[in-house]
Write a protein that binds this DNA or RNA. Structure first.
Lengths: 256, 256
DNA sequence: TGGCGTTGTAACATAACCGTAACACAGGCT
DNA sequence: AGCCTGTGTTACGGTTATGTTACAACGCCA
């Protein structure tokens, strides 16, 4: 799993020259990232690497400081540890979103494994993206890049949501009701194809070309088998089925 | 940007009977407009006038409420005040566009004079149109009409509707009064053929060629059996029959 | 190299569907 | 009323689409 996310040139992470000047010069100066993180070691690690990638950084250790810093420094992006003493991440999110000046400030949550529940909550509260601890620094920097890019170009979503299913095409992850699921690569692509047009029925042929490629010579029945595997993965706990069979036509995923 | 607006007779705005029945009956019921506006007086003004023009309306006063309402009510169009407490208009836009279900939901921004900057931003974020305060009610309604017409053209070609029957050729679903029904493939195609020309009587031969194909060698009486099965599926709860038998000719489905 | 996860296929099991025939019923005609 | 014709209704055997399982091949990584 997770083949896709690793394919952005990793060396860019550590090379300040990695991003082109033309891309950079849109900023009056280097973008300022505010890192809200109570563990000093982690904060330092992040700061060091972001700076190497050409960002300015400021580190604060709790929510109070954070709100102050936001006001005084007007950062371009926030890296927000979800578990904080005093003011929780969610609370900071909420307060920032409540203020006009910071309403559109990109916020990337940093969550620990096992906090999947909070994740959905955070996205609803206005976080733009998330990184899961322990994170690869490449991934972190890629997401910071992406988030900043999104604020200038329009918002390109990489999250597909249907009901309580959430598919992240960049992180290559799927969760249901906040619970992280494990899908094999083919299952993932199959689900992605289906979630890209929810409600719509896709024929086996359509799925074959989308998931296996136009030139593949795979049998149509193979789709069925993978649908079965997908269902098994999605409905681990006897929950209602998202994948609908339309006899004589194909499959679809529906919200209701 | 969308030139918009001018194509439609303005006086229709205040005449409930202004739009023809044929135009209207494409919707399962009156289109639902979600009005997101924190100033109660303005919200009321809009609501009153839209309702006079035959729309159903729901008013919410902030972003949180709005997102909730979108999820629960699935409105057909959103009127979004740009200046809101808490969640800004742009943020609401973005969140709606991030979800597959609401990616194509028409959004009309309502901006105050002097917010031109935000306006461009909003259009980039996915708003479909805008109205500038102070607006003429005719203009507002004209834009609502236009936006709904656009969505109907762009992604409703696959919906057939007769009375409270709704057939979706893309999702391959049929519902009656919002209740999803299960039809076998042949029943579905039969109903589709009938609903494609509502009110018109189709002979058994016509149906045979449309549903079974030109070259099929199926007995004409077979149609009767499938009509029976179709009726059974449609009228599960003793509701009035949509399928009309025309003795000596064939069958049709009618609204009344 | 050996275990592990993944994949495509074949084979079997099951459920859904289909077409037909046979009979029941209704409407119109003499 | 009695007949004829057209339609409603039902039951049933056969067929097909899909669900399900098992397995061999493959690549990957330790």
């Amino acid at each position: 799993m997770r083949s896709a996310s690793d394919e952005q040139n990793p060396q860019r992470a550590n090379t300040p020259g990695g991003r082109s000047t033309s891309e950079r010069q849109r900023w009056a100066r280097e973008p300022l990232v505010l890192i809200i993180e109570d563990e000093a070691a982690i904060a330092e690690l992040i700061r060091y690497n972001l700076q190497k990638s050409g960002y300015r950084c400021q580190v604060v250790h709790d929510g109070e400081e954070a709100l102050l810093a936001v006001e005084e420094q007007t950062p371009d992006l926030i890296l927000l540890d979800w578990m904080l003493p005093e003011l929780s991440g969610i609370e900071i999110c909420r307060r920032l979103r409540a203020r006009v000046e910071t309403r559109n400030l990109p916020i990337i949550m940093v969550t620990a494994r096992g906090e999947e529940q909070d994740l959905l909550r955070g996205l609803r509260e206005g976080a733009d993206d998330y990184v899961r601890k322990p994170f690869s620094l490449n991934e972190l920097i890629a997401r910071v890049d992406a988030a900043l890019r999104r604020t200038r170009i329009s918002h390109q979503a990489h999250l597909l949501e249907v009901g309580d299913l959430l598919l992240d095409t960049e992180a290559v992850t799927v969760s249901r009701a906040g619970q992280r699921l494990h899908l094999a690569p083919t299952e993932f692509r199959l689900l992605q194809a289906l979630m890209q047009s929810p409600g719509r029925v896709l024929s086996r042929d359509t799925l074959l070309s989308q998931v296996w490629g136009l030139d593949s010579d795979v049998e149509a029945r193979t789709v069925d088998v993978h649908v079965r595997r997908l269902r098994q993965a999605l409905n681990a706990g006897g929950q209602p089925d998202y994948v609908r069979t339309v006899r004589g036509v194909g499959y679809s995923v529906d919200a209701d």
